[in-house]
Design a protein around this nucleic acid. Structure first.
Lengths: 144, 144
DNA sequence: GGACATTAAGACCTTTTTGTCTTTATTTAT
DNA sequence: ATAAATAAAGACAAAAAGGTCTTAATGTCC
């Protein structure tokens, strides 16, 4: 509802990849998709985008696969979301008004705004690494 | 993002209708759609649904149109949303997990939950009448 | 260098959402 | 009764989101 399916898969995939990458492992698309319970070919397309955007890396050939270099520049979660869904998904009015602001609010502006700005702020500070770590510690989950 | 377009139009239409209905006016689909800046035939379909669900009323023929009887049982905003988008749109996990709860949270569960439950609560108490009144007073807007 | 494993790319398909058009039914006024 | 105004209904169309498949490119290992 808030994020597109594509974005959900992208987030889960990236987080899972990060976890595995800590051990220096590379992941095939098959294993990855199974693990995060996402449709395989669709996930492959998404991973390609992430590679092109340099959010993750990949190697072809035997022993190839997808991975994230933990020593690379940390990726903010918001950047991944921005890439897939666009950053303005946070700024949309609940009723679809073009201009919806403090001085020209829709009936639910206040609630919407306070939420989305809070969430945006959180995602602007959090890195993939941090999400991955909390999942590894068992504090959070990316599957059922 | 949160609500579908359909739901956005439905909300705006109902609020606008309510305002006009206070003066005992009925509104043709043409005028209504223009006023809330929504595609006319699509809006017509939505209004039909609202009529069937008895959230609004209509009369055919000359001097007919759509209206809301202000003396009828007040309509909770959440009921309109439930009709169009389904109530569970509030309960969806941000990452699409089937089970996402306090004890099995996704990485953004806390933020998501606190928001959506707050919004749901608000919409469960507010009536169309209240929204309409705040729009009439100029405290809120449903168009640009 | 050949076989094989793997990602990359792009064309394609399906479903859902959004939106349109045409015809029919109903009501009112004359 | 008839004409005009209006909503109701349903078939249709377009666009976006979601998803699949096939082929190409690339790398590894022997």
């Amino acid at each position: 509802m808030m994020f597109s399916k594509k974005c959900e898969y992208a987030l889960k995939a990236a987080i899972y990849l990060y976890i595995k990458s800590i051990d220096g492992k590379k992941l095939g698309i098959k294993e990855l998709a199974k693990e995060i319970e996402s449709p395989e070919p669709f996930t492959a397309k998404i991973l390609q985008e992430l590679v092109r955007a340099k959010i993750i890396s990949s190697n072809k050939g035997p022993n190839g696969g997808f991975y994230i270099d933990p020593k690379a520049k940390p990726v903010l979660v918001i950047d991944l979301i921005d890439l897939i869904d666009g950053k303005d998904s946070f700024d949309r009015c609940g009723l679809g008004l073009k201009e919806c602001s403090e001085s020209h609010p829709c009936p639910i502006h206040k609630e919407f705004k306070s939420y989305s700005s809070r969430l945006k702020k959180l995602l602007t500070t959090k890195t993939l690494k941090e999400f991955a770590e909390s999942v590894e510690l068992g504090d959070a989950f990316i599957n059922n």
